[in-house]
């Protein structure tokens, strides 16, 4: 039994937002009379944590406690338009829309607080803990809750804001391809270590180590969650997953999880990651997108590692055991 080890890596970039733009998202923010803030959207959370990070962005932009932000999303009767959750766009588009709405609401909140405290708006700041106070004077303050109540019951004002983010459409020149397709680019470099059984063709991924440059992280644990989950999916793509195992033939298409091949929990290697933050100039607080590229970088890294281990050149995925054995046979026969 011969097992050969190899290392490979890959460098990738990934665009944020729908290609060529034209994909707006809106947000509405309003204060309740007791000082909570409702962020109303119709964006969809697929589990990546959209509701969580929008609440963080709203809290940051409003200058209020995170726990007082309610995200109300998922109903077209109440939520303003969102193009959808795809293309690594929601953090960027929805995040920017939330900031715009929050800033408008914050402006009214500070105007109300200024009137109550009898100071100028420019003299006020929020502490993020639920209070608005005069800069440098901690005890000359009013709570956000009191401000919200006063706005509604005393001053007849709505603490609310409207936000939208639209990257204007940029059509591609049909001849040259000239265009402005993306908002920002995230980057990653992934190193994979593999062990290949030369008798069975089985590939075991021993380690995945990645550096991801994703701009400002809104929530580092959620970024890590994407990276680890994406590494698993990348391993699946590289080694196992297909709905046409004998492509281009359509025969033997899987019908269930027994025949659609994916790595199991126990097949998962350790995933090490380091996250770099180079701010995006147009992202919300400098954030880029991370949800999609996490699958892209492990795939070529794993294939390069297999080629490194075996001294062959496999150029297709998935690299099934059969693909490995045929490549080794070809090599033994003196072929490429």
């Amino acid at each position: 039994m011969t097992k050969l080890r190899g290392t490979g890596f890959a460098a990738v970039n990934y665009p944020t937002g729908m290609h060529l733009g034209g994909d707006p998202t809106q947000s509405l923010v309003h204060a309740t009379t007791s000082g909570n803030f409702v962020v109303t959207m119709s964006s969809v959370d697929l589990g990546q944590g959209l509701k969580t990070i929008l609440a963080q962005i709203a809290a940051e932009a409003l200058g209020v406690p995170y726990d007082t932000v309610i995200v109300d999303t998922g109903d077209t009767d109440t939520g303003p338009h969102c193009t959808g959750t795809f293309a690594s766009r929601t953090t960027h588009r929805a995040g920017n829309a939330v900031i715009m709405a929050a800033e408008e609401a914050r402006k009214v909140m500070l105007e109300v607080a200024a009137e109550k405290l009898e100071v100028g708006v420019e003299d006020l700041e929020t502490d993020g803990l639920g209070n608005i106070h005069v800069k440098g004077v901690e005890d000359k303050a009013i709570s956000v809750a009191e401000t919200a109540g006063a706005a509604h019951f005393e001053l007849g004002r709505t603490i609310s804001g409207r936000g939208i983010y639209l990257k204007p459409p940029s059509p591609m020149d049909p001849e040259t391809g000239e265009s402005d397709p993306d908002s920002t680019q995230a980057h990653a470099c992934t190193v994979a270590e593999v062990e290949v059984d030369t008798e069975t063709g089985d590939v075991q991924v021993l380690a995945i180590k990645s550096a991801y440059e994703v701009g400002q992280q809104v929530n580092p644990e959620l970024v890590k969650g994407q990276i680890v989950g994406g590494a698993w999916m990348g391993i699946g793509h590289a080694l196992q997953e297909t709905t046409a195992p004998y492509y281009p033939a359509i025969d033997h298409a899987p019908r269930d999880f027994q025949t659609y091949q994916m790595p199991g929990a126990v097949d998962m290697p350790e995933v090490e990651c380091e996250v770099l933050e180079i701010a995006s100039r147009n992202g919300p607080f400098g954030a880029k997108g991370v949800g999609e590229m996490v699958t892209n970088s492990p795939i070529p890294a794993i294939v390069n590692a297999i080629n490194n281990a075996l001294g062959v050149r496999i150029t297709q995925i998935p690299v099934t055991p059969e693909v490995v054995l045929r490549a080794l046979d070809e090599k033994a026969a003196g072929g490429g």
């Binding site: 589990g47 680890v228 989950g229 994406g230 698993w232 199991g264």
Partner: peptide, 11 residues
């Protein structure tokens, strides 16, 4: 089967 997390956080 979990399609999101890569299992490691669950483990």
């Amino acid at each position: 089967i979990c399609r999101c997390t890569g299992y490691l956080p669950i483990i």
